[in-house]
Design a protein around this nucleic acid. Structure first.
Length: 644
RNA sequence: GCCCACAUAGCUCAGCAGGUAGAGCACGUCCUUGGUAAGGACGAGGUCAUCGGUUCAAGUCCGAUUGUGGGCUCCA
């Protein structure tokens, strides 16, 4: 048998061919215990099992739990452990696929009867036994023909389909299989060496999922779980899930009395209560002012527009199933699912010169979309919502500048809430309108603006709007969850379809370029995100209640009313709690309602014309004259503003 | 739209062998005037989501509808 040369950490080792990766690493004295113990290896840049025999010269690197791919590898391995457990308890179940996902893993099963919560417990117990038994992940290879035969014999129809697709789509000559206990799965691998690695796991939920994500194919049962290298990490993640539940905007919306949804009114339709409505108009007014400062015009369009317009715009072809239509005097109308049409008619209401451009029309436009019943969710997915929508009409010369202006606006407005974000560039989808040249131009313009500003972005191929490519912004909230809010879409097509023109320097009529964009996206959804981001403790400028005045005894009632009047006169949102309750009780309630400032008024304050100030969370600012508090509160409740 | 689960007082939930509804909080009245996260007593509150079926009898069993939750598909 020939010898091979294996390079590990810059040292070269001579070894017999067929030596496993794990054995080779031992030659280099890679730790076999502790956090640096390898769970897999990288051989000539290919991720391999430690049990993989080495057949050629090459560079070998250990992969331990600190490696970026380690957690996925572990979770995928735990998915196999789960599948083995499920197969041993329910032998009639057919297995499909079980990948690692962002915060865990899942495995999809075809099983006639649904899994029950009890089943999850039983599966977990079986998994623990498998972990304890430290079963080895055993890799083998087969020709696709053999593999098909093998899985057919086992009745694993889904695996048969997967192998056949691998052959058809990638012309593979060999497939790899992994055995764990009695369970053999088609799998690219690699895996952790044995099941003892998978001890820190938890099964989370069962849900339906279509085979291969296709709604025309069978509905499978998906079990979600998560796994980590240590119990501490697992506990931290479970705590995060608890925290997310605690911050759920649907719960906080009720607790803080912001909004409600009721089946009597209809699903996906938000009813804004006084505090929620106040929060919302505060946010909207902030945005209006910021747009006016940046040269936008505020406009408003009608709620319904004639159906033929939707046909001309392409919305009829692409979205008519998600629109509502009605008829007036024999004429068809569609309720608007977006705002751009009216804005184009404002553009068209006059002859435009290049001197008029850019035109920036901003509308807090309320739209209706017939979302499928199963997708509705609190404030984040509703059937009627308000977009902070704008359409910019510009010449090719100023396009770049306008895109950059929008990026700056996004930066400022999202930054106001402490959001960081990531950018994606979405390109032409399968279902689209417009010429190839227009798509190339538009995509190039967005790309150029991003790279000029050195903003890192990822390309999301085929995910653009039907009329143009777009920049999508995914913000990250306080819990690290990502939400898509802002979007910038470059459109050459609608100006064409609605024959928008301007007169250029040379006296010729030309087409303006149209930019569609939102910053918050949907006001409803954004308030949902803000609620969870702040856990209900909105910053003072946005909080529907900024100051709550508490009396110690009824002797302070009159003064409390005076203070409330003074605060309100200064534009502060103040309430007085004059109920016959103990101070501690009122404080508790004000804290739970997340009011930023509490003023305590007792005999001392009445006598001195002063207020005792307590901030949300318990910080005591002490007793101060009412005027001092007024100055402080006016300063602290100013909305953010930027120089540019 | 699809899979599964759920729907009881304003809120959170108990009621898990079918026999005419219960707790805590909130609310009302009274007592208490109490200085930084829940003072006390009493009281009022429900056609058990809606419609239909089984049964002598249905909150409880069955079906449909609506809505909600966890996902899937979709998201201009």
């Amino acid at each position: 048998m020939a010898n091979i040369q294996v390079t590990i950490k810059d040292a070269v080792y001579e070894a017999a061919e067929g030596l496993t990766a794990g054995e080779a690493l031992k030659l280099a004295k890679v730790p076999t215990k502790g956090p640096q113990r390898p769970l897999a290896a990288r051989f000539n840049d290919e991720l391999v099992d430690l049990s993989r025999p080495l057949a050629e010269d090459g560079v070998l690197e250990p992969v331990d739990q600190s490696a970026p791919e380690a957690l996925d590898l572990l979770r995928h391995s735990v998915a196999h452990i789960m599948a083995e457990a499920v197969k041993s308890i329910f032998p009639e179940v057919k297995v499909t696929i079980g990948p690692a996902i962002e915060n865990g893993f899942y495995y999809d099963f075809d099983k006639p009867e649904p899994f029950t919560p009890d089943d999850l417990g039983r599966i977990e117990d079986r998994m623990r036994a498998i972990v304890k038994a430290a079963q080895v992940f055993e890799r083998s290879e087969m020709t696709p023909l053999k593999a098909v035969e093998f899985f057919k014999k086992q009745g694993e129809d889904y695996k048969v389909e997967l192998v056949e697709d691998l052959v058809r789509e990638q012309q593979v000559k060999k497939v790899s299989l992994y055995r764990l206990g009695d369970f053999v799965d088609l799998c690219r691998g690699p895996h952790v060496p044995d099941s003892s690695w998978g001890g820190s796991f938890k099964l989370l939920s069962v849900a339906g999922a279509y085979w291969r994500g296709d709604e025309h194919r069978p509905m499978l049962q998906r079990i979600y779980g998560t796994a980590f290298f240590g119990g501490k990490d697992l506990e931290a993640h479970l705590r995060l899930l608890e925290e997310a539940k605690r911050r759920d905007h649907r719960r906080l919306g009720k607790d803080l009395d912001l909004f409600s949804v009721t089946d009597e009114v209809g699903g996906g339709l938000i009813i804004w209560h006084p505090k929620g409505a106040l929060l919302r108009v505060t946010l909207e007014e902030f945005e209006r002012q910021e747009h006016l400062r940046r040269g936008y015009d505020i406009v408003m369009g009608p709620q319904i527009l004639r159906t033929e317009l939707w046909k001309r715009s392409g919305h009829w072809d692409n979205y008519r199933d998600n629109m509502y239509f009605t008829e007036i005097d024999g004429q068809g109308y569609g309720i608007k699912p977006m705002n751009c049409l009216a804005h184009m008619f404002i553009y068209r209401s006059q002859l435009r010169s290049f001197r008029d451009l850019p035109l920036r029309y901003f509308e807090l436009g309320t739209v209706q979309r017939h979302e499928k019943s199963g997708v509705l969710h609190g404030l984040t997915r509703v059937r009627q919502f308000t977009q902070d929508d704008a359409h910019l009409f510009c010449t090719p010369e100023t396009l770049d500048q306008e895109i950059k202006g929008i990026l700056k606006l996004v930066d400022d407005l999202l930054g106001a809430f402490g959001f960081e974000y990531e950018i994606e560039l979405s390109t032409r989808p399968a279902k689209s309108i417009g010429s190839d040249e227009a798509w190339e131009l538009a995509t190039g313009a967005l790309q150029k603006a991003l790279s000029d500003q050195k903003r890192p972005y990822e390309v999301n191929a085929g995910d653009g709007a039907f009329y143009g490519p777009k920049i999508d912004v995914k913000l990250k909230d306080a819990l690290g969850r990502r939400w898509q809010c802002s979007t910038i879409q470059c459109d050459f097509t609608l100006p064409e379809r609605f024959d928008l023109t301007y007169v250029d320097h040379d006296g010729q009529k030309k087409r303006p370029i149209m930019l569609h964009r939102t910053v918050f996206g949907s006001i409803e959804r954004f308030i949902g995100i803000l609620t969870e981001h702040y856990a209900g403790a909105f910053p003072a400028w946005l909080n529907p209640e900024q100051v709550r005045i508490l009396t110690v005894t009824s002797r302070a009632d009159e003064f409390a009313r005076t203070v409330r009047t003074r605060l309100r006169r200064e534009g502060l949102r103040a309430e007085a709690d004059l109920r016959n309750e103990k101070l501690g009780y009122k404080i508790r309630e004000a804290q739970m309602q997340k009011v930023p400032y509490v003023l305590v008024l007792g005999d001392k304050e009445v006598e001195d014309g002063a207020v005792a100030v307590r901030k949300l969370g318990g910080q005591d600012l002490g007793v101060m004259p009412l005027d001092s508090f007024l100055a402080l509160a006016i300063f602290e409740t100013k909305p953010p503003r930027w120089d540019f």
